[in-house]
Amino acid sequence: MAAPVDPSNVEQLRAWDGDQGGFWAARAKRFDEGVARYHGRFLDAAAIDRAAEVLDIGCGSGQTSRDAARRAVDGSVLGVDLSSQMIELARQLAAREELSNVAFEQVDAQVHDFGEQRFDVAVSRHGAMFFGDPLAAFGNIARAVRPGGRLVLLTWQPVERIEWVVAFRTLLTGEPPKPPASGPNPWSLSEPDVVRELLTAAGFSDVQLHGLTEPMYFGRDVDDACDFVTEQHAGLLTALPEEERDRAVAELRADLAEHQTADGVFYDSAAWLVEARR
């Protein structure tokens, strides 16, 4: 990675530019399908007009960036991420969809020089929870947003409200999830007071959080969902003795069967739609 990375984000780079990023790139369609019921509401909140200049933070394989580009037909979109594999996939998909107003760069948004007051709106769909120094990161993003511009994030609510996390972690380890008290993790922006204080200190104002609850898709049937979930949580399973691993997978399959619907396997989830002004 040629662009500089803050020392506090080195471990995130190692994960997202390594096996974790590779898995997300290989399963990009499934991850997009998983949060599909949040996606439209999230993009609508961004209020992207035809001439907008948009920054997509932690863009992954670029679905949000590409859909933003379709709205900003006379503007442009820049998607950034630490994962070279997802950035390359995002470029391929944008080229396939003949989108000429979207670009992707592998950079650390915490320290990258985006320029001053360049963007009308900055967005992040579950990509802004992993900064080593969140205050520095959002301060850097704030500098890149024009006065009156907007920040729109989708982040997870506290873990106990996320049915699929609680279910999978408990079934595969025998214990409920215990999120880290601090540091980069999916729950680092799950507490409203923390989010308001952080974004205000970083230079944003009028910070608002709106609670959303939507079912998340995990597969067309039990076999499909089990393949995905066990691959995503392979680290938990490999730590178990073989007999316990077989038991855990059997219990997982039974739980997945209870969540089978005519449209696939779904589990409840809860997210915050975060909106703020520069």
Rank of each mutant, 00 (worst) to 15 (best):
E105I: 01
R91W: 04
A103F: 02
P179A: 14
D193P: 00
I87W: 05
F119D: 07
R66W: 02
F168T: 10
V80L: 10
D81E: 12
P134K: 11
S205T: 14
A94T: 11
R150P: 00
Q85R: 12
D67F: 11
G211S: 14
G148R: 08
E160I: 04
V123G: 03
E88S: 14
F119H: 06
P158G: 10
D74S: 14
H112L: 04
S84M: 03
R161G: 01
V159S: 12
T64R: 00
A68W: 02
R96S: 15
F104S: 08
N101Y: 03
A181S: 13
P176M: 10
T200S: 14
D108M: 03
R96K: 13
L153H: 03
E116F: 04
P184L: 06
T200K: 06
E163S: 07
V145K: 03
E105W: 03
G148Y: 06
P147Y: 03
D193L: 13
H210T: 15
P158I: 09
P180A: 12
R196D: 11
S188K: 00
L135W: 01
S76G: 14
V77T: 05
V166W: 09
G174C: 08
V77L: 07
D133I: 05
L151R: 01
S190A: 15
I162D: 07
D81L: 06
F138L: 09
S100A: 15
R96V: 12
E197F: 00
R196E: 14
S190L: 08
E105M: 09
M129G: 09
R150I: 02
R125L: 10
G148M: 12
A90F: 01
A202N: 10
Q208C: 04
A122D: 11
S83D: 06
L93I: 14
G139L: 02
D67Y: 04
F138E: 13
R161K: 12
V195C: 05
I141A: 10
E105H: 08
G148H: 09
G79C: 06
Q110C: 07
A128G: 13
V111L: 06
L93Y: 04
L135E: 15
G127T: 09
V102F: 07
G148C: 09
W164S: 15
E97I: 10
L153E: 06
A103V: 05
A128I: 02
A142Q: 13
F131W: 11
G139W: 03
L153W: 04
D81I: 01
G174M: 06
G75T: 09
S83H: 10
F131E: 08
P134H: 11
W187K: 00
P147A: 13
E163L: 08
R118A: 01
V73A: 14
V159M: 11
G211E: 15
V107R: 00
M86Q: 13
V166H: 08
S65G: 03
A94K: 01
A94M: 04
T173C: 08
Q110N: 05
F114V: 08
A142V: 03
E105T: 07
I162H: 02
A94F: 02
G203E: 11
D120P: 01
H210Y: 02
R125P: 03
P179R: 09
A103N: 10
R118F: 04
